[in-house]
């Protein structure tokens, strides 16, 4: 798997002004691999996945996605964004559009799909996230968990090869976390390549092929989940895990 990575980060560095957020990040994700990134807040984990579809620009090092290197060339960015779906912590659904319009927006304008076909695809994905009956409501009328499932369906409508999740359950009430995680587990079962920033360790144990622990802009540890949870090598990882699982 590692011989043919679909995402490759090679000595990636990034600064916000004086602040060094990412320090020599090396990461390779193979096709179909599920990577879960965790770490304390401010460790740079969100920044890593935001660099992968270039919502943030890295300043040094190389990022290659599906054989295309990320440069400031607009076409290469567009090509990559079409292949990479993203789910945000705060859902970011478009409040002025109905659920189905949210789902068909990109297929219509980016992929130039006929309306009917786009709507059929959208309904299929809404059924998969189990809320087809909400298609003609506005995002403001849905619960947080439903909104996040719509957001996942919206990303899937472009039929991406890779899905990025940026703390998808952090903004949700506890009773809604499960419904979103269920969708994500199902997605993982279908062989989607996934990079996921989350603190849901139960989810990580079930689906992750490898765990990444970050702190202060550095990848401290990368290991399969069994090793990672049973015998973390670094003291920092141990500390973090005890805090997160402790309560």
């Amino acid at each position: 798997m590692a011989n043919d990575p679909v995402i490759l980060l090679d000595k990636v560095n990034k600064w916000y002004g004086e602040f060094h957020v990412l320090k020599d990040i090396d990461l390779a994700v193979g096709k179909g691999e599920k990577v879960v990134i965790c770490g304390p807040s401010g460790s740079g984990k969100s920044t890593v996945i935001r660099c992968i579809n270039r919502l943030e620009e890295h300043q040094r090092g190389r990022i290659v996605v599906d054989g295309v290197e990320l440069t400031s060339d607009i076409r290469s960015i567009d090509a990559i964004r079409r292949k990479v779906g993203m789910v945000f912590q705060s859902f970011n659904l478009f409040p002025h559009l109905t659920v189905i319009e949210n789902l068909t927006l990109a297929p219509l304008w980016v992929k130039k799909t006929p309306l009917k076909q786009a709507q059929e695809t959208a309904m299929r994905y809404l059924e998969r996230v189990k809320i087809p009956e909400q298609a003609h409501k506005y995002p403001g009328q849905l619960s947080g968990g439903q909104q996040q499932r719509v957001a996942i369906a919206r990303a899937l409508c472009l039929k991406p090869d890779i899905m990025l999740f940026d703390e998808p359950t952090s903004a949700l009430d506890p009773e809604m976390i499960k419904e979103v995680l269920d969708v994500m587990v199902e997605l993982a079962g279908e062989g989607m390549t996934m990079v996921c920033v989350t603190h849901e360790m139960g989810f990580a144990r079930t689906v992750a092929d490898s765990m990444v622990f970050m702190a202060e802009g550095v990848i401290v540890e990368k290991a399969p989940p069994k090793e990672f949870f049973a015998a973390p090598k670094s003291e920092r990882t141990r500390q973090f895990l005890s805090q997160i699982i402790g309560h």
Partner: peptide, 12 residues
């Protein structure tokens, strides 16, 4: 576009 706002080179 956000990438235009985040800045080019490290500044020390």
């Amino acid at each position: 576009e956000p990438m235009r706002a985040t800045l080019a080179a490290p500044r020390r």
